[in-house]
């Protein structure tokens, strides 16, 4: 008997069958690859934190060891300046580090206390909005709590060659040496329209052709420096 591929029953069964097969296939692929991709994500995050401390170009294999060496505590603080968690002793990636960037808010702010060549540094994670999607970054401050030591920014889906340039070292390096806070304690570090730097102590050139992404970085920095002010002023 020749199968009638146009009958309603056949169509219905075929569609159901395809969906079930595909669902199983995807579930297996996801479960099988999850461990590897999670490990990749953790290493990538550590790499970003190290990049904010101007430690770049590390081999993937060396990232874990270097992170353990450099980071002293992965604390959790809040916007009132209270320390909620001192950070995990050994691994340094289970307290503040374990907070997903979507879950960062005024009530739980991760903060990394680090030691680079004998000098104490604070790395502040930040989350904001670019033109097309989320942006995030890490800003490292010196022990004085205001001089920027280094920075790292990245994005979900900014335009390649324009907004995506915030991920480039060239843009990030421009932050080093700037002052994060003004004398009165308010957030001063900002990104201005390309070529319009008035006050070189706290202003960074934006990206030509990517004003909205640059503004996103500016707003993100302003918001998060504000959230960390209480903690930093206690140091």
């Amino acid at each position: 008997m020749k199968l009638n591929t146009n009958s309603n029953t056949y169509t219905f069964l075929y569609a159901s069958g395809v969906v079930v097969v595909v669902a199983f296939l995807l579930a297996f692929a996801y479960a099988g690859l999850k461990e590897r991709s999670d490990a990749n994500e953790r290493i990538d995050k550590k790499q970003q934190i190290l990049a904010a401390l101007n430690i770049r170009g590390l081999d993937k294999a060396d990232v874990e060891a270097k992170y353990k060496d450099v980071v002293l505590q992965d604390m959790i603080v809040n916007a009132k300046g209270e320390t909620l968690n001192e950070g995990t002793e050994d691994t340094k990636d289970e307290a503040g580090f374990a907070i997903d960037r979507k879950d960062i808010n005024a009530e739980s702010l991760p903060l990394y206390v680090c030691n680079v060549d004998g000098a104490k540094k604070f790395v502040l994670p930040m989350v904001g909005k670019g033109l097309w999607g989320g942006i995030w970054g890490f800003v490292a401050l010196d022990e004085d709590g205001t001089t920027v030591f280094g920075s790292y920014f990245s994005h979900e889906s900014e335009t390649a060659g324009l907004g995506a340039l915030i991920k480039e070292q060239k843009f990030q390096e421009a932050f080093s040496g700037k002052q994060a806070f003004a004398a009165d304690g308010t957030a001063a570090l900002t990104v201005v329209k390309s070529g319009n730097v008035q006050n070189a102590a706290c202003e960074v050139d934006g990206i030509t052709g990517a004003t909205l992404t640059s503004n996103g970085v500016r707003d993100m920095i302003k918001e998060y420096l504000g959230l960390y002010t209480a903690f930093l002023s206690k140091q």
């Binding site: 169509t11 595909v22 995807l26």
Partner: peptide, 17 residues
Amino acid sequence: TIPNRIRIIIQLVVVAA
């Protein structure tokens, strides 16, 4: 084996997977 009426959807499912 693909039923003619839902062939586009089947194609889409294969591509998406």
